[in-house]
Design a protein around this nucleic acid. Structure first.
Lengths: 216, 216, 216, 216
DNA sequence: CATGAATGAGGTTTCATTCAT
DNA sequence: CATGAATGAAACCTCATTCAT
């Protein structure tokens, strides 16, 4: 009794909220929440403005929903990383960061990071929630690895907070930056050997060691 | 002829634009451009809404002026850093970054960085201008130091772009983050030994060297 | 598929711009452009303020549109008069003026004349445009008839500009005056024999001719 | 005790209100009442905005005062014309109209006529007052002359209202027009022989009489 | 379900008016 | 007297939200 047309329609209907959220996400990331007009969201999604209200109660609800939907995969990613916990802090740290970049930093989820940064002041509860569910656990994870490395004597002693920023913020900033300035020159794609240099310097230091020096 | 009162009034009038710009800056950084109401700017500055229009043609002009006024000192800071150029890449790089943090990252100019990140999409010309006058020169400066260090064989070989991000983005992100989340837990003051760890890891690497290892 | 209701709605929507323009026209004529509030335009048209902006970009655009829409019929009228050009200057001149009064001077298009007079200083481009498209052609038309009459020896020789004003300005001023002072006593309807006297005096002069004098 | 300087100051002070009124008049005529900003009035008069309030209670009071000051000389002119009443309707009518043009239509008082036309709707009491004190008497005057001419058998019989408009409106419209469109081409100075043609046609008609025709 | 015309609260902007100097 | 910075009511304009179709 359900014709293929009905099927297609059904699929369309089910996909609607996600389509709308995706359109909203793109514009929220590009312009910010307040500067985004629902007119624009609707026309980007190819629907009428009224349709938005069939799926979302308000602009703010749309925003929360967009964030919400981004959070679920993020939580998933972070938890997936927890699974990977192994013994070698070096390999583990590298794996975590590369995984973060592959699954978040270089994907459309990077936009959520930008939104977090830009809109946290206007949506403190959202920020708190995100902080609790995603940022916190992620920081915990990094901290555990870093501190484990220090405890094991593999990593240099020091302020773990400082270390966490050093290992993570370059990636985070790069991700956010690419959302912000697709127009500027900085939007060039990540260079091939970015991570090679990154981890080389991170683990072995910027300075050439005496032993290496003699090798040259 | 000029009574003290006249003086006070004159001083008031001369100071007005800066006062208004400061109030606007604070709110723009906190809420973003679009979400900031001129009513709020005015009442934060302790004047009426109309007064804003005695000094700025429009909300957008106010924004541009705020950025403009932030740029001048930034250019000054960057140029001041150029003066410091010496021969030792290690000391120089550390000096540059500590200076940036002291003069920009930890001051109210950090807000300009956040604005840049958040509003670049809505004010592309402003972003281009800033990019040209401040960001570009600053990147050049870092690049020169990094490349000089590599050429001299003091710094490990690698992608300079990657290195630049590693040395600068943790500071930049920290600065922006503190603007965004005065409400969240991350707003705690920079720990005492942040920079010690930062440069220790940066220059010598996260890994404990074999020679050090034996010392423990 | 289209119910009568749909029809009515459609008709309503199509008619909206004209309804709004009519309401605006009436108030612009009555109060002038600057003194007319869009609130008043909206409530006279029976819509809310925001509705105006669905159809017109700004108050000025509304004004221009109102004028624009008045110009089209005016051009039509003037061109219709050109068609009437015949050989007898006397009958032709009378026909033109009576036609102008019937189609413009005594209709709502008279308001456009008042607007032209009152707002020309504030909308010089609009004035120039009207001058080019309507006023100029109309003056040309009158001039041609007047000069043809003079050339043929039917009309007394004299400054055609002066004659044109004599034949047209009483009608124009009467039209404008009735827009301006519906409140004053002058708003009484045109007397029955207005045109009889008008053309009698115009063609034969105010003075009683000697031959007539003897008839009394 | 009164130095020359004091004298000059005194004269300046006494002249102030008239200077301000003159500046206001010019702008009211050019832009209309509502579109005229007191800022512009003040700067045209070379004083500060506050100074206006030393001499006039409000913008409307300024407007009324401007009109008021124009009325007095107008009343004077009209009364001066009454004095001239003689016996010959032809000479009298011509004298009245030429006098009106010389003393009002071609002077800055023409602006008052434009204001009357444009602002009557916004200031009905002012319009009524003007109507009572100036327009009415002036119309009476013309009517008396016209009717006297008709009674004496010098003027052709007809609707006096119509005749009054024919003799006066061309001049009035010309006066107003020159206020409205200093920008348009119509602002050319009155042609030399304007009045010659005007009265020739007015008294003897547009048509060439048979007797004249043979003279040609 | 989907539409888009209509709404009106709330933002930006203007400017007549005031008042300390 | 004269000033002009400051005010705030009221205008213009925007856009999230509603609802008849």
């Amino acid at each position: 009794m359900t014709t293929p047309d009905t099927h297609r329609r059904q699929r369309r209907k089910d996909a609607r909220p996600a389509e709308l959220a995706a359109a909203a996400m793109a514009l929220f990331v590009e312009k910010g929440f307040a500067a985004t007009r629902l007119d624009d969201v609707a026309s980007r999604a190819g629907v009428s403005k009224g349709t938005l209200y069939l799926y979302f109660d308000s602009k703010e609800a749309l925003f929360r929903s967009v964030i919400e939907e981004s959070i679920v995969p993020m939580i998933g990613e972070v938890e997936a990383m927890v699974e990977r916990l192994g013994d070698d802090p070096v390999r583990l740290l590298r794996a975590l960061l590369e995984f973060w970049w592959a699954q978040i930093g270089s994907t459309h989820l990077a936009g959520t990071c930008k939104l977090m940064l830009c809109e946290a002041g206007n949506f403190p509860e959202v920020a708190m929630y995100l902080n609790e569910r995603v940022i916190g656990p992620w920081h915990m994870l990094l901290n555990r690895v870093i501190e484990a490395g220090m405890t094991k004597g593999v990593f240099r002693q020091g302020n773990p907070e400082s270390v966490r920023q050093m290992v993570f913020y370059p990636l985070l900033m790069q991700a956010v930056w690419q959302c912000s300035l697709p127009v500027c020159s900085s939007a060039r794609p990540m260079p091939e050997n970015y991570f090679d240099t990154f981890f080389d310097v991170l683990f072995r230091g910027l300075l050439v060691e005496p032993s290496e020096e003699t090798q040259r």
